[in-house]
């Protein structure tokens, strides 16, 4: 059944690796143009779900639809430019901030204009004079910000963010939250945000998914986190499951 208005739809998605069943029968839809937060204990399969959406891995069974088209019908390069992903571990390539920032364009044989580069740095709260700095001289938080800016260079329609504020101080975290919410409001970018911070999941999310042991156990408008129905989710919200 095709449901209009879904940015991503999962139908009975299973994924295993190295003998571990990482995702079990994941079914559900991420609404287009909304911010969906994804919460759950470590090892729930959240990051793997992102990698499937970005096309870095493929499910063993089941189907993923991106904007109502099977994921396999997209060219991998086209898919990855449209479904941007910033992971918790902000991987940097060796070299300058600029080299990292313009990497998505370099891969297409293009260059990033100086003004655009400075604007992007400003948006994520980095100093525009940092462009020539070596990435190894940046702090973990600064690398995280640079990773977000780099993902934005491709101007993706869907943005997958994995714990991107975990290594930031509270002021920087607020700035990044504002930036992402603004992107969502101004450009209609669909955001899926993995977070361990339930307050953050509540405050920025329109919808929330709770994942545990590779399964989606409860979904709905984020406010359900105040009063979940599922017993395991209740335990998780109370901090009894980490």
């Amino acid at each position: 059944m095709t449901v209009a208005g879904d940015a991503i739809r999962f139908e009975h998605v299973d994924y295993s690796t190295n003998g571990l069943h990482i995702l079990k029968n994941v079914t559900g839809a991420i609404s287009e143009g909304k911010i969906t937060t994804l919460v759950g204990p470590s090892g729930a399969g959240k990051t793997t779900l992102f990698k499937l959406c970005n096309g870095l891995q493929s499910p063993d069974s089941g189907e993923i639809f991106i904007k109502d088209k099977p994921i396999g019908s997209y060219e991998p390069v086209e898919l990855r430019r449209n479904v941007g992903m910033a992971l918790q571990k902000a991987t940097m390539i060796s070299g300058s901030v600029r080299k990292n920032l313009e990497l998505p364009l370099t891969l297409q044989g293009k260059e990033l204009a100086e003004d655009s580069a400075r604007e992007l740095l400003k948006m994520v709260g980095l100093d525009k004079t940092d462009l020539q700095k070596k990435t190894k001289d940046l702090s973990g938080g600064q690398q995280q910000k640079l990773s977000i800016a780099r993902t934005l260079v491709n101007q993706p329609d869907i943005l997958l963010l994995d714990e991107i504020t975990s290594s930031l101080d509270s002021v920087s975290r607020q700035d990044i939250e504002e930036l992402i919410v603004n992107m969502n409001e101004q450009y209609g970018t669909t955001i899926v945000w993995i977070t361990h911070n339930l307050q953050q999941a509540l405050s920025i999310g329109d919808d929330t998914w709770v994942m545990m042991d590779g399964e989606v156990v409860e979904t709905g408008e984020s406010s359900f986190l105040r009063n979940p129905q599922n017993d395991r989710v209740k335990q998780f919200v109370r901090g009894e499951i980490e």
Binding site: R80, G84, T91
Partner: peptide, 8 residues
């Protein structure tokens, strides 16, 4: 993986 994920 980073380069692949960015469309490389």
């Amino acid at each position: 993986e980073l380069i692949l994920s960015l469309g490389g």
